[in-house]
Write a protein that binds this DNA or RNA. Structure first.
Length: 512
RNA sequence: GGCGGCGUGCCCGAGUGGACUAAGGGAGCGGAUUGCAAAUCCGCGAUUCGUGGGUUCGAAUCCCACCGCCGCCUCCA
């Protein structure tokens, strides 16, 4: 069974074969740190974090690089507008980004190189492109000549000679309308800190070259997977390919993975769209993450296939919140019955590894568990989950398998009446094992990492203390069959978005 | 004008030639459970996959046309 990945370059799903056996290099285009990121910027990192978790599980040693673009026109403009320096702004926005990533449990990024620290690499590449005759300096700028490179347009499938909306040739030093800047000459009005030395004059890198430089520096001339949003296919990734392959004479990234764009009110979320500006304030990641758990955003994003667009709305979020709660409620239920937390001591998921490395050969035999009871369900769920993920990271189908497993576990609890009286030890073991399976599989995509924050945790448990008193009073009146009072308490709490759950073993409460 | 994507039940969404009378979730309805709820379980719900043709023994899945939505061609994850 092979892992299939859809490759934008070939426009089809292909069996994945890494450059070096057992190792995977991934480059994801990261943020230009001039404004706080919005929800759309979280999609790539969340998906690739899941990809890395999954590939690691499949036996690969993954090296994942996400760049930080801290030298750019927009940074210069924004820093001036905020009356600060480019690097102060960059540092602040980078921190904001890193904080958001942490809240989203994006922990797999191995390296976040900055453009400002790779000017030397960039200059070297540009020089070699000039030496090869595919780039030319013009009044301090340096341009890439798209007519001098075979294969230009192969990613985005376009003919450069036949494009509308191209920049006016007369207003620039370009030889061809499709030529793009590798280096931009410094202007007097710009701050000195973004004026870097180069053989053809002071200036700063153009937009695309930094990714080529950092990807090749950390992953090699040819590496495995390059990712980004669909809107980057042209011109950014097309240009990256051209300049990288022209410079190295080798293929650049083997597989190009592009995620769908996030939409709001059926429109793409874009920082440059005036209509989106107001909405964007609320869609800013860090603002959103104040209200919405990172796990929920991750769950929302992973519920849809990564290449499809995601329509963001409160309604969609509420539906997902409920769906996600199903799992956490189940895990709590299992813990009440077994006395053990399904979040802890999760045994590794056993599966046939994709990578036949020598050390994993010993465990290469897939188990053949008895197909009865919950063990059979776990085995089947694992199988379905892996099949889905192996097929171009079909997280939606993988999660569907987890839902069915959750239902099977609940059914098991009901049918064996595990909540009334003391459950037999062997059934507890079986139950916990199945819950561990769901947790373990979920974690391969980065969900179910921890129990949701308990109510009242922020206020030292004061809310819970008061609730316990209130519930005790209610329990008392219920004991006296004073249901009117008991229901009044429940209804009043519901008005405050607090739901009560009367169970045989006590009453639970939760804030919706 | 060029390039590309999408259109599946009330909503979201997986499936891209036969196990599809179409996964899963949300909402709804009926039942079990409950003092009533909540939670959980069971059942119901698309004979059909934007529309019209075609290919095939067989299509949601391939081809053609049309309609609608979206993205890129300028900065964008």
């Amino acid at each position: 069974m092979a892992l299939l990945i859809y490759n934008t370059l070939t426009k089809k799903k292909e069996p994945f074969t890494p450059v070096a056996p057992g190792k995977v290099g991934i480059y994801l285009c990261g943020p230009t740190v001039y404004k706080p990121s919005h929800l759309g910027h979280a999609v790539g990192p969340i998906i690739f974090d899941a990809v890395k978790r999954y590939l690691t599980f499949r036996g690969y040693d993954v090296n994942w690089v996400v760049n930080i673009t801290d030298v750019d026109d927009k940074l210069i403009t924004e820093a001036a507008a905020q009356n600060t320096t480019v690097f102060e702004l960059a540092e602040r926005v980078t921190k904001d980004y890193v904080d958001s990533m942490a809240k989203l449990d994006v922990v797999g990024i191995d390296m976040m190189p900055k453009v400002s620290e790779h000017i030397g690499d960039i200059v070297d590449i540009i020089q070699s492109l000039i030496d090869k005759g595919v780039a030319y300096p013009a009044n301090g700028d340096v341009y890439f000549d798209v007519t001098r490179h075979d294969g230009y347009g192969k990613l985005s499938n376009r003919d450069v000679a036949d494009q509308e909306g191209q920049r006016d040739l007369q207003s620039t030093q370009k030889r061809n309308p499709g030529d793009f800047a590798l280096w931009k000459a410094a202007k007097d009005s710009e701050p000195d800190i973004v004026k870097f030395d180069a053989p053809w004059g002071k200036g700063r890198p153009g937009w695309h070259i930094e990714c080529s430089a950092m990807a090749m520096r950390y992953l090699g001339d040819t590496f495995d997977i390059h990712g980004g949003g669909m809107d980057l296919i042209f011109p950014h990734h097309e240009n990256e390919i051209a300049q990288s392959e022209a410079a190295s004479g080798k293929p650049f990234a083997n597989v190009w993975m592009h995620n769908g764009l996030t939409r709001f009110n059926t429109k793409k979320i874009s920082k440059s769209d005036p209509e989106m500006q107001a909405i964007l304030a609320k869609m800013t990641l860090n603002v959103l993450l104040e209200e919405v758990p990172g796990e929920l955003l991750r769950f929302l994003i992973l519920s849809t296939h990564y290449r499809s667009p995601i329509e963001y709305s409160e309604t969609a979020l509420d539906a997902k919140r409920k769906a996600l709660d199903t799992f956490h409620r189940l895990f709590e239920r299992v813990e009440r019955i077994t006395g053990s937390s399904p979040y802890e001591d999760v045994p590794p998921i056993v599966a046939e590894p994709l990578v036949a490395s020598s050390e994993s050969a010993a465990v290469a035999t897939a188990p053949s568990p008895a197909k009865d009871g919950l063990k059979g369900v776990s085995a089947e769920t694992t199988d379905r989950f892996i099949t889905a993920m192996d097929d171009d990271f079909n997280t939606g189908a993988a999660i569907a398998a987890l839902f069915e497993c959750a239902t099977a576990i609940n059914r098991f609890i009901e049918s064996k009446k595990l909540e009334s009286g003391t459950a037999p030890a062997e059934l507890k073991v079986e139950l916990l094992g199945a819950a561990h399976c769901v947790v373990g599989l979920g974690r391969l995509t980065g969900v179910f990492l921890a129990p949701p924050k308990k109510q009242g945790e922020e206020d030292d448990g004061l809310a819970d203390t008061i609730m316990q008193v209130l519930l005790k009073v209610r329990q008392h009146v219920r004991g006296n069959k004073d249901f009117a009072t008991a229901d009044m308490i429940r209804d009043l709490l519901q008005e405050q978005a607090i739901t009560l759950e009367d169970r045989a073993d006590g009453t639970l409460w939760r804030k919706n």
